[in-house]
Nucleic acid binder design. Sequence first.
DNA 1: CGTTTTACAATGCGAATGCATTGTAATTCG
DNA 2: CGAATTACAATGCATTCGCATTGTAAAACG
Lengths: 196, 196
Amino acid sequence: MPKIVDHEARRRHIAEALLRIISRDGLDAVSLREVAAEAEVSMGMVQHYFSTKDEMLMFALAHLNARIGERVARAAAAGSPRALVRAGLLELLPLDEERAFEARIGLAYLARSVVAEDLAALLRAALPYVVGFYAEQIRTAQALGQVYAGLDAGKEATILFTMAQGMVNPALIGHLTPEQVEAAVDYQLDRLFPSR
Amino acid sequence: MPKIVDHEARRRHIAEALLRIISRDGLDAVSLREVAAEAEVSMGMVQHYFSTKDEMLMFALAHLNARIGERVARAAAAGSPRALVRAGLLELLPLDEERAFEARIGLAYLARSVVAEDLAALLRAALPYVVGFYAEQIRTAQALGQVYAGLDAGKEATILFTMAQGMVNPALIGHLTPEQVEAAVDYQLDRLFPSR
DNA sequence: CGTTTTACAATGCGAATGCATTGTAATTCG
DNA sequence: CGAATTACAATGCATTCGCATTGTAAAACG
């Protein structure tokens, strides 16, 4: 067998270049040649590690999700249910350059999921877990008396999540400042967790 | 001068074909040839009425906005501030085939606005009016004693709007049913307008 | 040492793209 | 009636695309 190469590392290297292109210029700007140039490798190498463009896009999405997942897990280390929910929501919002980088990519895939059934299936599978996490925290808070027991944890979770998702574009195009985004999140959270 | 032709009618005819393509197959599927085929006209005719593809995309967006605007205006005919806000929100959500058709297109343009500055500028200009409409209704309701005066109308409006926007994709891919979408909207509205 | 296998690099290719160009029929105006 | 203008239709063209093919160097293995 030939040269010693870390296969997965190469794939990640290429995937990161791909993500940079999506974040900077959108999904439309992705071509094998562009990816090769951005990754500073040959086009043949890109083809060597990904048999089709679609596979590459899927791998890059999984790679991104892993990255975000790690960050969320780290942010979710600290504290109360409210802090956990807040941290989880803010990780999805473009409040700094790192999160904006990811939010742009996420929105691109999100839009494509409307016409790409494989992406839609992925989302449908993942969403229950994401929203479920928020719902669970709210139920915990209800058990602790931090949230009024009469509230519908599932609906509250859905509202929080969709609100955050809906703020992504307005924040990215500059209609909402990071401060306004954070203030709106906290405003809704204050209502849910009246103790503060 | 030659043949009598309703210039604007032709442009609308082509734009509607364009919107159908976007809604069915996404923005990527739009090509001059596809549009011509969908509109059942020659490609030369498409070029005759739109000097560039970009101009066509912009015109189609304006056409769509006009359509939605009309529907919103019609829906906003009836009633209380709460009914107005509710109607305005529901018009943006894919609760039936007509609105789903439009929501798919809206999401496609929304995603592109992240990397297309002209679209972003359009959105930045339009958003204050849309969100402002909700805020205004909430302030009216506050004056009427239907909404607690201590609430921040601007933030409430932002939350309602972003929540609705954030539900578009989950609804389109089937994660949220139309019933769940409507229930979540009413749930948040119930909190805002406690009288019911 | 030679064979096999992996890791690329380079090039080729048909299809599709946006746009430009050219041609033509029809209608109005002087 | 002739000239000009408009409304198309048809085709050409350079570019870009994803992917296939081919070639080559290097390393492990018998």
